[in-house]
Design a protein around this nucleic acid. Structure first.
Lengths: 226, 226
DNA sequence: CACCTTTAAATTGTCGACAATCTTGAGGTC
DNA sequence: GACCTCAAGATTGTCGACAATTTAAAGGTG
């Protein structure tokens, strides 16, 4: 693969080479093609993508700031290790941040936000009825839901922290520990109630429901892990 | 100034040059010596520190990932702009995250954490009595308080997000908009109550008190700003 | 005078090479 | 056999130079 001439499919052109490398590598790490905990060699990747080490280093540094890589001076970079503890920590942080996002969304949401949320919900409903018990609407559907609510909060710092930082770690855990939860039907009802609270402009309730939603998901994982 | 041979006072040696540049520049941005909103030129800074552009670029990218710099492809980097909106957004995120940190600290704190918190509190009490109404214990004292509670939460992701990411922005606002609040005496009482809740292991109360504490500070700022 | 075009200067992006540091494995010592 | 020493190899850190792009100013046109 050669990313130098925008000849690849995933990352659009007009970005810098370093940025395309960053996007490509991020995908491979999230999906586990570059395994968690493995060492990342600069010369090796540079050869693989026909890029210079400089551009590659820039990509690696962005991955580090995403929390997907750990770099140590004069030693090199490793893909972050996945652990039960790390996953649970992620849930606590999400509970706090998405709870706040939900409260703000209930207060700040525009009419377009509401339209989009309702459309998304009915789309998920159809999808869920179709797939009956198989409950595989989660991977994208659940993501959609949380993503859109955060966007509706209108707080750019919150949006950046969740959508550009934490969610890639969330996706990494989902891909690699395969968290296709069997909570689909129940999760859908919870989503539905949360959106109702946002429509009603009830920030306190919206926050409580979102926090409960995330905590239920966390408990579900905890049960599975033992 | 020449950072190449560790000859400077602030950043210790045995770090890479890029990291020393990062630490130095971070300080200058936080304290406003490099003004908010100003353009940052790579060749200029490289000359100033007798470093290559490569090492400097690495420092700039870390600053970008801290949210202190904004970089645009083929255009360059600017120091982030300070705005009323940005400050209020910061308070909302802190309310969510530090509230959670406080809850977790109440549940997870070690005996050493409690000793350190009590010591800190009595130190602040003495300091405050000394300085009577002048109320300047804030800049370091308030920082100490929030910092230590976050540490006691035991959640590494939370600690990293707050202490290595958001707090530099907080300090930047404090330095440059001079937020030496006149809430000193009241803030001290609030700190005291929060630590009591943590000692008692009452997570819910600790979270409520911390969120109220931060929101009060936010309201205080809002009042000042108009 | 406003506006577009063009050209030169400066800045950013990318690269390959050299120096400093770490890792690995062989060999020796107790 | 366990442990230390010390080289060879590989990897990371740093640098200066060239190419691509943007910015600015100069000049022309309506």
């Amino acid at each position: 693969m050669d990313l130098r001439d925008g000849g690849t499919d995933i990352p659009e052109a007009n970005l810098s080479l370093a940025e395309r490398l960053f996007l490509t590598l991020r995908g491979e790490i999230v999906e586990g093609r570059i395994p968690a905990g493995s060492k990342v060699s600069e010369p090796e990747l540079a050869r693989r993508f026909n890029a210079s080490r400089g551009s590659l280093r820039e990509a690696l540094m962005r991955l580090e700031s995403l929390g997907l890589l750990e770099r140590r001076v004069n030693v090199g970079a490793r893909v972050v290790e996945l652990s039960e503890r790390g996953l649970l920590e992620l849930y606590d942080v999400r509970e706090a941040l998405e709870g706040m996002a939900c409260r703000l969304a209930a207060l700040e949401r525009t009419e377009e936000d509401l339209v989009a949320l309702r459309q998304m919900l009915s789309r998920h409903e159809q999808q869920e009825e179709l797939q009956a018990g198989r409950a595989y609407f989660q991977p994208e559907g659940d993501f959609d839901f949380h993503f859109r609510i955060v966007q509706a909060s209108g707080n750019d710092l919150l949006i950046d922290t969740l959508c550009n930082r934490l969610y890639y770690r969330v996706r990494m855990y989902r891909y690699q520990l395969g968290m296709a939860s069997p909570r689909a039907k129940r999760a859908f009802r919870e989503h539905s109630h949360i959106i109702e609270a946002i429509e009603a402009g009830d920030g306190k309730l919206a926050e409580i429901l979102m926090r409960r939603h995330i905590r239920a998901s966390r408990h579900n994982i905890e049960k599975k892990l033992r």
